[in-house]
Design a protein around this nucleic acid. Structure first.
Lengths: 114, 114
DNA sequence: CTGATCTACAACCATTTGGTTGTAGATTAT
DNA sequence: ATAATCTACAACCAAATGGTTGTAGATCAG
């Protein structure tokens, strides 16, 4: 099952967050929607691919909780969600902390016998 | 081409980093190898899959620069690489900064007409 | 009302992913 | 020297990914 449930996130949720971030187009969509909410078709205009493809990328980001879609007439405004971003950051800081604590243990060992 | 070359990382490198993190087994391998270097077969013993499968996961982490392999006799010691981790964290902080600057712009607008 | 726009979603396809088994080379232990 | 261990890597397979086109439902504009 692989332990990884910190921050109230299941493995599957963390999988989805990092998978969503593992594509340059999706990262660009996330950046733009963090700057200001945009409709899906406004987003689609930026990329050299079909509307449906962009729609799928937005769906992946939405499934990861990185963006939300707010109905606005016939449009859906895509908003970036900084909360999920913060959770992912916290996750990565955990890894850094693990490494740092290892360095500290090694330093403690070294200072022990001097 | 989608702009994303901060921190000396190309889109492809960022893709590989997040893709490597988007799997619970790989995150667990990373955590263990940050705690202490381990051989591939030592790592493989933790998971309910073949040695070759774990070997592939390590290769993905290595391709992303998240771990390095150091030859040690017939073993290869897998070390976690905190530098790449730090780069990924910096990337995510960029996104947070984008969102924060947007909030600041909105607040500036609000305080303008009062 | 009619036509244009925005979105949703299904069906399809090529490629990648994540697993398997099997073979072979290097190193260590007996 | 032989056997056991550790790793590398190829070949294979099912499922997921990232793209496409096409169809249809809502909503807005003339």
């Amino acid at each position: 099952m692989v332990v990884d449930q910190r921050f109230g996130l299941t493995d599957e949720e963390v999988d989805r967050i990092f998978h969503a971030l593992a594509d340059a187009t999706r990262r660009d969509i996330l950046r733009r929607s963090l700057e200001a909410p945009l409709s899906v078709s406004e987003l689609a205009a930026f990329y050299d691919m079909s509307f449906a493809a962009v729609q799928k990328h937005v769906a992946v980001l939405e499934g990861a909780g990185l963006v939300t879609k707010e109905p606005d007439g016939r449009k859906r405004l895509v908003h970036g969600n900084p909360e999920t971003l913060a959770k992912a950051q916290a996750l990565m800081e955990e890894y850094e902390a693990i490494w740092r604590s290892r360095v500290e243990r090694l330093e403690a060992l070294l200072s022990e016998d001097r």
